[in-house]
Nucleic acid binder design. Structure first.
Lengths: 130, 130
DNA sequence: ATAATATCAGACAGAATTAGTCTGCAATAA
DNA sequence: TTATTGCAGACTAATTCTGTCTGATATTAT
């Protein structure tokens, strides 16, 4: 239906919170984020885990453990996050479809994909912290 | 998963074919489009029907019947089509979410939605006919 | 050392959406 | 009047989404 999934929406919210704590180097636990953002703990844990595998955040186990960004919020775009959680940052796979190399619609989707990628790329986490 | 549905992809392809036949005022049947574009006839019929209800195309029954655009391909954008078939042309409903008026992520999705809408709007059917 | 806390991993499942299929009626042209 | 085409809607298999649940592992505080 043309929408980002909850995964990406929750993931972005979580990343913004981590961004806020980047300077102080404070770890934030999944439980804290879950409470603050009213996101299911179990579900959020899986999302966070996926972000960690992509090495955009890092986890520390044990009491007072939690997560932190591995790089500055200036260098993390919404596109980075979406790419990890959605596997695609494209609206349409049409440009990559093997059906017909001269597909009449391909041109449109190529352009639209590019515009979207650019829009996602331009927004950095640092802009969303305030 | 962040993608337009087949409905929108098929719908756009169908609309491009109708656009090609706009000048000659020739009707094109669902069967013809289905054959040419290798799209399931039954499924395509439903898509076309939805486009007709939105009055962006018009159907004529009977032998040698078919469909035609109700206005010039210059005045039909990809956004028009997507809006009809997907019900939304936004990537995220976050900006419209009642959860939290000061949601930290809202800003991002507002901008991304706007960029996408603009990209969809800018591409007219007339550009895709060649 | 032990208990508490937190990450980490993966199986499982209900609900929703997608992508069609199938049946039949209605209108029109040959 | 018959073949063709649009038109309408019920139905369904498959997939994806949005979680839940169980348990293991690592680390820290006591």
């Amino acid at each position: 239906m043309f929408k980002v999934t909850k995964k990406a929406e929750y993931g972005l919210r979580a990343m913004i919170i981590l961004a806020k704590n980047f300077k102080s180097k404070q770890l934030v636990s999944v439980r804290e984020i879950s409470n603050k953002e009213k996101i299911s703990f179990d579900f959020l844990e899986k999302i966070i885990s996926q972000l960690e595998k992509a090495k955009i955040i890092k986890g520390s186990k044990g009491v007072n453990g939690g997560y932190s960004l591995t790089k500055s919020p200036n260098n993390i775009s919404v596109r980075d996050i979406v790419n990890i959680l959605e596997e695609f940052d494209r609206i349409s796979n049409c440009p990559f479809c093997p059906r017909n190399k001269k597909c009449i619609a391909k041109n449109a989707w190529v352009k639209i994909n590019a515009s979207l990628a650019k829009a996602l790329e331009q927004i950095k986490l640092s802009q969303l912290m305030r």
